[in-house]
């Protein structure tokens, strides 16, 4: 893992949403949706990010494409998002709008909800062509050809470019979203639970499509899911999030076979295991209680209220990610 293999370095990223209230619309509380997350995305790898719903996965994705400042009023973002460009790293969070526009094509996102992620007033062709209008100097005919080519790449037909999004099924809409993301020639695509809103029968098709495209275009993928089973087969590495923190990250095999963080262990114990040999090693761990509200995050380790190996010291500080094995990190000092 040499250093220049890293496409994106995320360092201590924090995203806080203010909660306004009272007569003066002052900030009365804040949601620490992403609370100090650090990780790397390698070139041409698939990094899976797993966590329960509400743990800040979508917020993390949107922070990386740097849209929150405009779409979420009052949001506070800190930390670094370093994108590799020609051998050096640029901190996207420090750029102004104009500078940022240079790097926008590099990171694209496929959104969780295929219904709100396509503008209902635009034709599919217009939706896919817009990134070309902005980021390329192609002629009209070239753009039309490129749109047709992109539609065919994602398994739709060129004629469908003169349709409106509401004429498509969820799976097809997600394909349109993929085509739009591809249109900027990105280096990293963040797929935010791209199949969770789809029928089980078409989930596999969409996932396979993305994996084929990754291979063809040599893309890096950050694949967000709320369920390990979706990402374990397609990811080279997996990160596990809990309540705004990354609690474990390592290669897919390591995280699956020897999870280090108690939260990951409990997640995996809930997954049905097809291989009977490894079954014996896995006790079923049932967590107590619910995920705490991100408004009232416990002090110290966020997981301590539900942890089965909790110690009094866990309240004292957020545990850092420790290297438990080679390239396998977990944020708990009390496991091996």
């Amino acid at each position: 893992m040499s250093d220049n293999n890293i496409l994106l370095k995320v360092r201590d990223l924090k995203v806080k949403f203010p909660i306004m209230g009272g007569i003066f619309q002052k900030k009365v509380a804040e949601v620490r949706a992403v609370d100090g997350v650090s990780f790397d995305v390698m070139k041409a790898e698939t990094l899976g990010i797993v966590g329960e719903s509400g743990c800040g996965k979508s917020t993390l994705g949107k922070a990386l494409i740097n849209v929150l400042r405009l779409t979420a009023p009052g949001v506070e973002i800190s930390g670094e998002v370093l994108l590799e460009k020609d051998g050096s790293y640029i901190d996207l969070l420090k750029l102004n709008k104009k500078e940022m526009s240079i790097y926008r094509p590099d990171i694209q996102m496929i959104f969780q909800d295929p219904f709100s992620s396509l503008n209902p007033r635009m034709l599919v062709g217009e939706i896919i062509q817009e990134p070309l209008d902005i980021n390329t100097k192609l002629s009209k005919a070239e753009k039309r050809d490129k749109v047709a080519w992109l539609l065919e790449k994602v398994g739709l037909s060129a004629e469908q470019s003169s349709r409106y999004p509401h004429e498509f099924s969820g799976g097809q809409r997600q394909r349109i979203g993929i085509a739009r993301a591809l249109a900027t020639n990105p280096r990293l695509i963040i797929a935010d639970e791209p199949v969770s809103a789809l029928d089980v029968s078409i989930q596999a098709q969409v996932i396979n499509l993305m994996m084929d495209l990754q291979e063809e275009f040599n893309l890096s993928f950050m694949f967000i899911a709320h369920d390990l089973s979706v990402v374990e087969h397609i990811s080279s590495r997996i990160g596990v999030m809990y309540l705004g923190n990354l609690v474990e990250i390592g290669s897919s095999d390591n995280v699956n076979d020897s999870p280090k963080h108690p939260y990951t262990q409990s997640l995996l114990s809930a997954v049905p295991i097809p291989d009977p040999k490894s079954k014996e090693n896995r006790k079923r761990i049932v967590l107590q209680g619910d995920v705490p509200s991100p408004l009232a995050k416990p002090s110290g380790c966020g997981f301590r209220t539900r942890c089965f190996i909790v110690k009094p010291e866990c309240a004292n500080g957020v545990p850092p990610l420790d290297e438990k094995a080679k390239n396998h990190f977990a944020a708990c000092p009390y496991t091996e």
Binding site: V67, L118, P131
Partner: peptide
């Protein structure tokens, strides 16, 4: 409207503020 994902998508492909406002959001 601006909290909806199509606006995030428009920003992320590099659409200018003016276009996001009047081409994407206003019709909706």
């Amino acid at each position: 409207e601006k909290a909806k994902d199509y606006v995030s998508a428009a920003i992320s492909i590099g659409t200018t503020d003016l276009n996001v406002m009047f081409k994407h959001i206003l019709p909706n």
